[in-house]
Amino acid sequence: MSGNLLEINDLHVNAGDKEILKGLNLSIPFNEIHAIMGPNGSGKSVLSNVLSGNEDYKVTSGQIIFKNKNITELKPNEISNLGLFMAFQYPVEIPGVTLMNFLKTIHEANRRANGLEVLGPSDFLKYVREKAEILGINDEVLKRQLNVGFSGGEKKRNETLQLLVLDPILTILDETDSGLDVDALDIVSEGIVGMKNEENSFLVITHYKKLLDKLSPSKVHILVDGKIVESGGPDLAEKIENKGFESFN
């Protein structure tokens, strides 16, 4: 048994007939923050989706091991209930469903799947308000329909609230920082840092060094054309900020 929370071995993934991930390897131990940077279209979001079990993408070979369990064939909700959360790059709107109702529904589903008791309404409300407060989200926002008419930044803040409420073991942040203003970026990254503990890990996809400065990842990986082409410390992010991805092509 390895001590890694996530292990990806030689992962090949197709979107339609086109191969997008071309033999990707990545390991994330417990209690670490890893970052992935890479040019547009290199396969970062496809990777997040595949890890989350999105059936739009076909795993042609390779394996995804999460908590020592092969999750390559599992359904998205099964993976989710094992403790994997993805903050979407483009969160979807669900009309008529309030953010509060959504949070309650997913929290209950999660608790039930893990054999835990469901919180009563007043306990849950208290719990959500605690998390919302960290992110500066007020009751009015909780009453709004999920992501309907939300600005880009507001949607990202919502994703973070769901993250804090579900408190997963592995969190994938797919460009959660994109679209956030300077203050929001501070709030959100503080929220994430506050969530960090010995039993969870993060995979942070970003184009900007700024977020990484706040999260201080233990490793930065460079994803180009469906493969991790280089891994290193936070200084890699700096190198990319200055020189771009050209040297990796």
């Binding site: 989350s52 079990g53 999105n54 739009d56 359904k75 998205p76 909700n77 989710s80 209930n81 959360f85 993805m86 979407f88 969160p91 979807v92 709107e93 669900i94 009309p95 008529g96 469903v97 109702n101 959504f102 529904t105 997913i106 589903a109 999660n110 799947a113 329909q145 999920l146 769901q162 579900l166």
Partner: peptide, 29 residues
């Protein structure tokens, strides 16, 4: 939409729960 379904599934709901939620939202008014 497939996107709405996947979004809900990623949050841990099974397909029936996801559909019920989306339909309830649709009928809310």
């Amino acid at each position: 939409s497939e996107d709405q379904l996947f979004y809900c599934l990623q949050r841990g709901l099974d397909e029936e729960e996801a559909i019920a939620l989306i339909v309830n939202g649709f009928c809310k008014e």
